[in-house]
Design a protein around this nucleic acid. Structure first.
Length: 183
DNA sequence: TGCCGGATCCTG
DNA sequence: AGGATCCGGCAA
């Protein structure tokens, strides 16, 4: 078990997304530790990706996405839910990976199949925006025994407005895992 | 300043 | 199928 180093995130975004499958997301606060296996992710490729928040340039909301890799980008959606992303590639690119579903392993109550649900179950909100993922409070670790992952590739969810970019297979999930948000 | 719509989820 | 419910982004 080791916390993934910043170097892990400083790579091509779709590759980081694929490599995140099977890793453990850990939240440790108030002496309470919550651990979930990452089973579903989506890659957002930066300013030229019309489905990506940074495709319209830098704003106060997406500022963290233009910062250095290995930090959390958390935003509120539909006025109700939060979504957790990890920033990838060198600073300035505006790329990130959305964590869409977890398989609960430790200290988690509530559903974790869906980006809004997993944030609720982990207690993640915009207070976590910008957190350094190489620190223990919110981090991703490589499990001791790393199973071989069979990744399924599908178009991303909820980005129909993004034209050709909506069709690209940038959603990845672990085949046959029961905790994915949808087939 | 006002309006429109969203990387969702739950209920009927 | 539709509502909840807030804020970011853009037009005026």
């Amino acid at each position: 078990m080791r916390i993934l180093p910043r170097q892990f995130y400083d790579r091509e975004t779709a590759q980081v997304a694929l490599d995140l499958l099977g890793m453990l997301l850990v939240v440790e606060r108030d002496g309470c530790k919550k651990v979930g296996l990452i089973v579903e992710v989506e890659a957002y490729l930066g300013e030229h990706d019309l489905a990506c928040h940074t495709s319209k340039g830098k704003t106060p909301r997406n500022e963290v996405m233009f910062g250095p890799p290995g930090h959390a980008y958390v935003y509120m959606i539909y006025g109700i839910h939060h979504c957790l992303n990890v920033v990838t590639e060198p600073a300035g690119r505006g790329c990130a990976v959305l964590i869409r579903a977890l398989e609960p392993l430790e200290g988690i109550s509530g559903k974790t199949s869906g980006p809004g649900l997993l944030c609720k179950a982990l207690g993640v909100d915009r207070g976590a925006n910008g957190l350094d993922l190489t620190l223990p409070e919110l981090c991703i670790v490589e499990p001791g025994q790393h199973k071989k992952i069979h990744a399924v590739k599908r178009p991303r969810i909820g980005v129909d407005y993004a034209g050709e970019w909506a069709k690209k297979p940038l959603r990845f999930y672990i085949r046959d895992n029961p905790f994915i948000s949808r087939p």
